[in-house]
Design a protein around this nucleic acid. Sequence first.
RNA 1: GGGCCGCUAGCUCAAUUGGCAGAGCAGGGGCCUUUUAAGCCCUUGGUUACAGGUUCGAGUCCUGUGCGGCUCACCA
Length: 520
Amino acid sequence: MRIIVVVYNFGVISMRSLTEIEQNRLAKLERLQERGESPFPHRAERTHSIAMATQYFSERSSDKEENEENGLEITLCGRLRAVRTMGKLAFAHIEDVSGRIQLLLRADAIGKDRLKQFESDFDLGDIVQVTGKLMETRTGEVTLDLSGFRMLAKSISPLPAAKEVDAEGDRKVYSAFDNVEARYRERYADLAINPHVREIFRVRSRVVSALRSFLDKRDFLEVETPVLQPIYGGAAARPFSTHHNQLHQDLFLRISFELYLKRLLVGGFERVYEIGRDFRNEGVSLTHNPEFTQLEFYWAYADYEDVMQMTEQMVAFVAKKVCNSPLVTYQGHQLNFHPPWRRVSLRDALAEYSDIDYVACSANQLASHFKSRGLKVPSDATRGKLIEMLFSKYVEPHFIQPTFVYDYPRDISPLAKTKEDDSDTVERFEVFVGGLELCNAFTELNDPIDQEQRFLDMGGNYDKDSGEAHPLDLDYLKAMSYGMPPNGGFGMGVDRLVMLLTDQSSIREVILFPHLRSKE
RNA sequence: GGGCCGCUAGCUCAAUUGGCAGAGCAGGGGCCUUUUAAGCCCUUGGUUACAGGUUCGAGUCCUGUGCGGCUCACCA
């Protein structure tokens, strides 16, 4: 590699170091121009997608001769993925979004010079337009016998070279582009050459659309609430902060939608949902990305039992819609989303897997359980926090099949309503699948007096914990003071649902452009 | 943030105990009318992530930095 200045038509387009391959390709680009062929024409023509073309061919007369004699000329577009030159003929493959097809270039059809131009000036990765008639080769592969071709977009940088071939359903890949960092940094290249990566994002799109159709059918109204918020809330997480210059106002990127969506219940909407992005300024892991997609819905006159039922129906609906079955393979396990799902109280779950019955334990006794198990006791954790930590350590990993865990300690659930007969416990559930926490939901607290007290209690904890006061959302309390219908609320990590339905163990594999540390 | 592991050609990977930095694909030049990882002949391509150190000699050993992966912590 060396630093050179490339002069292209009107001026300098690049001063970065170009590889030898890139320099070669720029030379090819110039040869195209010298012949009057634009390397980047304004418009393309296309009569069929590749999938339509092959389908059309196979549905026509089975008489091969007839087919080839009377076949229509069709024009396809796509990326050049393979070239095999053989003297006076050449084979190639192009790929579009619908599939790939073989091309045949014959000197006696297009001319010796034209074939030579193809061989010398067209590269893997070029976007091309090709015209010809469909035929079958000796081996029975549907092939476009070209009468013409043209460049649509010259590829200057070589795509990471993955050689691949479809052989009887087996897709063999040679020199796969599978360096994880490189794939994320150049996701466009990853998508361009790894069809299984494209498929993940097709599934992701179908998941979101299935969620919408499920909720829309049940009269939920899709809404959009502020991403930039003067006060953040609805979850316990550190926010990203930003600033509005003209208003001289500090703002936060939302960490949840909850408080705004419930304001809408005060406003008279009875069923609302939002699918959007949350931002949490915290650790990155296999299951955490700083920005992630969340579904939240709020349902007036329902409680957490109703929400549990709807949750299992909704997720099973999505699985069936997207994977054609409520049975899904995830990391070697067969998950069954068919309702009803197992339900177990947090108390019973913890007793089952750790032999600790927390109802009988004070915070101090819980702390001694920590010590006897060799765990560090956080200095200022509440009793509820200790219970939750024991749960995530001893219980969570056991829940492979979708499982509702219900009834949580009050002091870690400031927005949930307590049980009628137990003021230390709230009507809350979480869903665990494949070892992941997928959903969090509760019978929502709608008593503004109780809510204010909870905020104040939490504020105290946050003061001790981080030195930062937890924001008290007075406007939210005001909204609730007008009268909020009793309701059930629900939140789900959409990225995690996509992980489950695409058998991915890393959240980054289901996010198109996952967050990466900046390079240099 | 801590621990462990990794970083070699455009891509995927080798390189014995510290002893000439290599292969396949991609690229370039040829031959080739049914190939499909086409084949055959020839061939270009390297600041071994970066900066130091030890050594006659470092891809290899040591220190630091960057980035990544895994993991722990954090994350109601």
